[in-house]
Amino acid sequence: MPYEPPTHSVERSLRATLGARTVVGVDEVGRGAWAGPVTVCAAVTGLRRPPEGLTDSKLISVKRRTALARVLVGWVTSYALGHASPEEIDRLGMTASLRLAAVRALEALPVRPDAVILDGKHDYLGGPWRVRTVIKGDQSCVAVAAASVIAKVHRDGMMAEIGAGHARFCFADNAGYPSPVHRAALEELGPTPHHRLSWSYLDALPRWQHLKKVRIPDGGGEQLGLEF
């Protein structure tokens, strides 16, 4: 399906309006998975012409995405990855976990960005960074598209490695996301140590519902309780 290639228009706008010399694109992968971490990539690209075929990672075949990621890690000015574990997702919730992973990625960059382009309409990052949210930024912004591809390929590789010890779950194929094979393995074997135990998939698995965790606000923050 034809698509418009991403541009540097948002990066140029941030340079012009904020004087931002270093602009970083940020995108996440793994938000809707049942298992595995949520992963965030922060990528700095400058204003160079991007590699051919760059767009949102979900629009590219696995083969092309993998090849493109190999090109991108050498093409970007710099990039870094951050993760929030299933345990952190269960304890903190997804929004706070996204921020945690994004902060880890941003703080791992060799330079501190002057502005951040965040994919989507919700700013889950906040201060002290100056954030510009862009809906479908992974399709329209070069830096965000680059972050999208690098994050997806890296997390898929992580899940394939995890899957080597849990063959029935086929993590190499589904990356921890819902699938018929994944659900069948859960019904028979129950969650692995890599599953998110606060996710609603457990509601449909009576045999394993006793493992479900819920976050209970207690005034000073949130803590885990067991749902029986």
Rank of each mutant, 00 (worst) to 15 (best):
Pro2Phe: 07
Glu4Gly: 12
Pro6Arg: 00
Glu11Cys: 00
Ser13Cys: 14
Ser13Gln: 12
Ala16Tyr: 13
Thr17Ile: 15
Gly19Asn: 05
Ala20Pro: 11
Thr22Pro: 06
Gly30Lys: 04
Ala33Trp: 05
Trp34Pro: 01
Gly36Ser: 02
Pro37Asp: 04
Val38Tyr: 01
Val38Trp: 03
Val38Lys: 06
Val40Thr: 04
Cys41Glu: 00
Val44Ala: 01
Arg49Thr: 11
Arg49His: 15
Leu54Ser: 05
Ile60Glu: 04
Ser61Val: 03
Lys63Phe: 15
Arg64Thr: 13
Arg65Asp: 12
Arg65Lys: 03
Arg65Ile: 00
Ala69His: 04
Val73Phe: 10
Thr77Ala: 12
Tyr79Gly: 10
Ala80Arg: 07
Leu81Ile: 08
Gly82Gln: 08
His83Cys: 13
Pro86Arg: 15
Glu87Met: 11
Glu88Ser: 02
Ile89Gln: 02
Leu92Ala: 10
Leu92Lys: 06
Thr95Ile: 15
Ala96Arg: 05
Ala96His: 06
Ser97Ala: 08
Leu100Met: 15
Leu100Gly: 08
Ala101Pro: 03
Val103Ile: 01
Arg104Leu: 09
Leu106Ile: 02
Val111Ala: 11
Arg112Met: 15
Asp114Phe: 14
Asp114Thr: 04
Val116Ile: 02
Ile117Val: 12
Asp119Arg: 06
His122Asp: 12
Tyr124Phe: 09
Trp129Val: 05
Arg130Tyr: 11
Lys136Met: 03
Val142Cys: 11
Val144Tyr: 07
Ala147Gly: 14
Ala147Pro: 09
Ala147Val: 12
Val149Glu: 09
Ala151Gly: 10
Met159Cys: 13
Met159Gly: 07
Met159Asp: 05
Gly163Leu: 02
Gly165Met: 09
His166Asp: 02
Phe169Pro: 07
Phe171Trp: 02
Phe171Gln: 01
Asp173Gln: 06
Ala175Pro: 07
Gly176Pro: 07
His182Trp: 00
His182Val: 00
Ala184Arg: 01
Leu189Asp: 15
Gly190Ile: 09
Pro193Asp: 08
His194Arg: 08
His194Asp: 10
His194Pro: 14
His195Tyr: 12
Ser198Val: 01
Trp199His: 11
Ser200Asp: 09
Tyr201His: 08
Trp208Asn: 00
Gln209Phe: 13
Gln209Arg: 14
His210Gly: 08
Leu211Phe: 15
Lys213Asp: 13
Lys213Pro: 12
Val214Cys: 13
Asp218Ala: 06
Gly219Asp: 00
Gly220Ser: 03
Gly221Gln: 01
Gln223Lys: 14
Leu224Ala: 00
Leu226Ser: 15
Glu227Pro: 13
